[in-house]
Simulated assay, not measured.
Amino acid sequence: MTSYSIGDQARAFALQTASHRLKTTLATLTSEMASGEVADLGQRLQGNTQMLRQMEARISMIDQLDRNAAEIEIFSQGMQDVLEAIRGQTASLGLSLLAEPFSETPALVSMRAAEAGDAFETVVSRINGAVGGKYLFSGLNSDAPPLLSAGRILDELELVTAGMTTATDVSQAVSAWFDAAPGSGGFLDTAYQGTIGQAQAFVVGDGQTVELGATAASTPLREVLKGMATSALVDRGLLAGQYHEQRDLLQRGGQIMTDNASEVLAEMGRIGQAQGLTERARTENSSARAALSAARNNLRAADPYETAGAITMVEAQLEALYSVTARLANLKLVDYLR
């Protein structure tokens, strides 16, 4: 009978290789037990990983849609906050200018005019507000403020109304300037810096796009600015010395603000609808993500009972290998020759 033997160095190498293999297998099994996922997905899926890739791509897309929805929620809430502040300010100021019977004295007219001027500056500043580096009411041109400063707008209106001596003429000129079509040298050409007729669109779900069309060029905001600017011109000294005409101009501005209150509310309602659509899309996205994540986890999950059994088996093999290694290490030539 032919026998084969290997040398000590070869035997040591074979034992080292076996030990490394078992330790690597044990580390892999331990990792699977801790993470709950198999280490070799290709083997689990027998090389067919297309479905898993599709699931993960879909989950990534839903994550992006959620980021879009989160952005529009922040943006739309910023718009609502601005419009609510403007609505409250113009409602009180408009009623005050329109209904309060103040006397035609220079002091009272000057006080009301200063109030209108301060309010106009505040409103323009609010409309020029930004969230996350994007301006709220500039349309697609969200990297630039929608309006010139309040002072520069009033400078333009002073040029338009120069030489006029009645509140009626001034009011009509201011109204025509704000209502002028693009290219006519009015508000849209000289004071507004955003886009016209182009809503900001956000994709928030499959076939679901939410648009925010409110800009500083929208009719409700233009009417707010028109009413406040009409009254604020008195603070610039327009119709100086004609206290009756100045009071009339203040009241005309108050009338515009009061008449426009419902339009501001309607604009807030349209933004509220966009917020509702966004919230519904986020709910649908959350449900879809949960279902896909569960399906993906089922494909990637490691059986804890099977893994535990494999760990026990590998540990037993390691113990046996260590025992063999110890016995071989204790062999002596004298014992062999006996």
Rank of each mutant, 00 (worst) to 15 (best):
M1T: 13
D8C: 04
A10T: 07
R11D: 12
A14D: 12
A14E: 13
T17I: 10
H20C: 00
H20I: 12
L22A: 05
T24R: 02
A27G: 01
T28Y: 01
A34V: 12
A39K: 13
Q43P: 03
L45Q: 09
G47W: 03
R58S: 15
D66I: 09
E73A: 15
I74M: 14
S76N: 14
V82C: 11
A91W: 02
G94V: 10
G94R: 14
L97A: 10
S103W: 03
E104Y: 06
P106W: 00
G129F: 01
L140N: 02
S142T: 05
G163L: 01
T165R: 05
T166R: 04
S171Q: 08
W177C: 04
A180Y: 01
S184Y: 00
L188M: 08
A191M: 01
Q200W: 02
Q208F: 01
Q208T: 14
L212N: 08
L212Q: 07
T215G: 07
S218A: 14
L221T: 06
L225V: 02
A232L: 06
G237T: 00
G237A: 06
Q246Y: 06
R247N: 01
L250N: 10
G254N: 03
T258N: 01
D259I: 11
S262I: 10
E263P: 02
A266L: 13
Q275I: 06
G276P: 00
R289W: 09
S293K: 12
A295F: 01
R296W: 10
N297C: 07
T307E: 08
G309D: 07
E315W: 03
E315V: 04
E319R: 14
S323F: 09
L328A: 14
D335Q: 12
